[in-house]
Amino acid sequence: MRILAPLLLLLAAALPAHAQVPAYPSAFKTQEIATNGTTLHVRIGGSGPAVLLLHGYGETGDMWAPLADTLMRDHTVVVPDLRGMGLSAVATGGYDKKNQAADMIALLDGLKIAKADVVAHDIGNMVAYALAEQNQARVTKLVLIDAPVPGIGPWEEVLKNPILWHFRFGGPDMERLVAGRERIYLDRFWNDFSADPKHFDEASRAHYAALYARPGNMHAGFAQFAAFDQDAIDNRALLARFGKLPMPVLALGGEKSFGDQMAAIMRTAATNVTGGVVPGSGHWIMEENPAATVKLVTDFLGAK
Rank of each mutant, 00 (worst) to 15 (best):
D234F: 07
L186H: 02
L245T: 03
D299Y: 04
I163Y: 03
L186V: 01
K98S: 13
I113P: 02
D117F: 02
Q20L: 13
D81G: 10
E32Q: 15
N272C: 02
R168I: 01
G276L: 10
A120N: 06
A237V: 01
A102I: 00
I163K: 14
R73L: 07
A209F: 06
H283C: 03
Y24H: 12
A130V: 01
P162W: 11
A237D: 08
H41M: 09
L144N: 01
G221Q: 11
H75I: 07
V297N: 09
L15Q: 13
S88H: 08
F193T: 12
G86R: 08
I123W: 11
H18M: 13
A264C: 00
D62Q: 12
L111I: 04
V42T: 13
A251Y: 05
M266T: 02
E175S: 10
G243W: 11
K97I: 00
A220C: 09
E182W: 03
L67G: 09
N217G: 00
N235G: 08
A12M: 14
V297I: 15
R241A: 15
A65V: 05
Q20Y: 00
K115G: 01
N125M: 02
L301V: 07
L15N: 02
Q261G: 02
I113D: 04
A232L: 05
D103S: 08
L111F: 03
D299A: 13
A179T: 15
A130G: 09
Q100K: 01
P197C: 10
G61V: 04
P80D: 04
K98T: 14
A137Q: 15
K256S: 12
A89N: 03
K97P: 00
Q100I: 02
F300I: 10
G94H: 02
E255P: 03
A132F: 03
L250H: 08
M1Q: 08
H283M: 04
H41D: 13
S47P: 00
G216I: 04
M85N: 13
A27P: 00
N161I: 09
